[in-house]
């Protein structure tokens, strides 16, 4: 069963002795439902990864970083949660995110979706859906509402951040432009 897009899985493992970019590895690409599951069943669940690791699944050709021209003016819908919730929610939310991506759950707005990232961190894990620059607020909010429904989350649990704000912040937290 062919997917609408070819997707790439990236793995990031934090090694402070190397540059950030050198810690990011392209694992493989896939473009069928069957190859997606073969890959998913073969790799560790996010909850089994060590702190400092990320998975990123992006449309093939888009690098999972702010600097990519498709991401630069975009933003992300972000879910973050404490370690307490990790084992019950992290793996479920990541899988639901992947199913939204490969199934093209955002319909026409799926074109604006670049990919998704899960960050495993000591304090708070994060899952984010990355989007390119959108033509309207309504489109950003539409994607957010569909995404929140896919994740089956309560209200005020996902926030939209503009990448440019995140890239230029110093120590202050990145503000949420929208919260759903």
């Amino acid at each position: 069963h062919p997917l609408n897009s070819r997707w790439a899985l990236w793995f990031f493992k934090n090694d402070r002795s190397r540059a950030w970019r050198d810690n990011l590895q392209l694992v493989t690409t896939f473009d069928t439902v069957e190859d997606f599951w073969a890959l998913y069943n073969h790799i560790q669940l996010p909850s089994k990864l060590s702190s400092g690791c990320d998975y990123a699944v992006f449309k093939d050709g888009i690098q999972p970083m702010w600097e990519d021209s498709r991401n630069k003016k975009g933003g992300r819908w972000l879910v973050s949660f404490s370690r307490q919730g990790r084992y019950s929610e992290l793996d479920r939310l990541w899988l639901e995110t992947l199913l939204c991506l490969i199934g093209e759950s955002f319909e026409e707005q799926s074109r604006a979706v670049c990919g998704a990232v899960v960050n495993i961190r000591t304090k708070r894990d994060k899952i984010a859906l990355w989007m390119r620059e959108m033509e309207s607020q309504a489109a950003v909010l539409h994607i957010g509402r569909v995404y929140k429904e896919c994740l089956d989350l309560p209200t005020k649990t996902i926030g939209y951040q503009v990448h440019a704000d995140a890239a230029t912040r110093s120590n202050s937290p990145v503000k949420h432009k929208f919260v759903l």
């Binding site: 069963h1 062919p2 439902v33 199913l99 199934g103 093209e104 319909e107 026409e108």
Partner: peptide
Amino acid sequence: GTRIIYDRKFLLECKNSP
């Protein structure tokens, strides 16, 4: 062209099919 869309239920059913 036409967008290829799969719902969650179908994708999950494919998980364990040979």
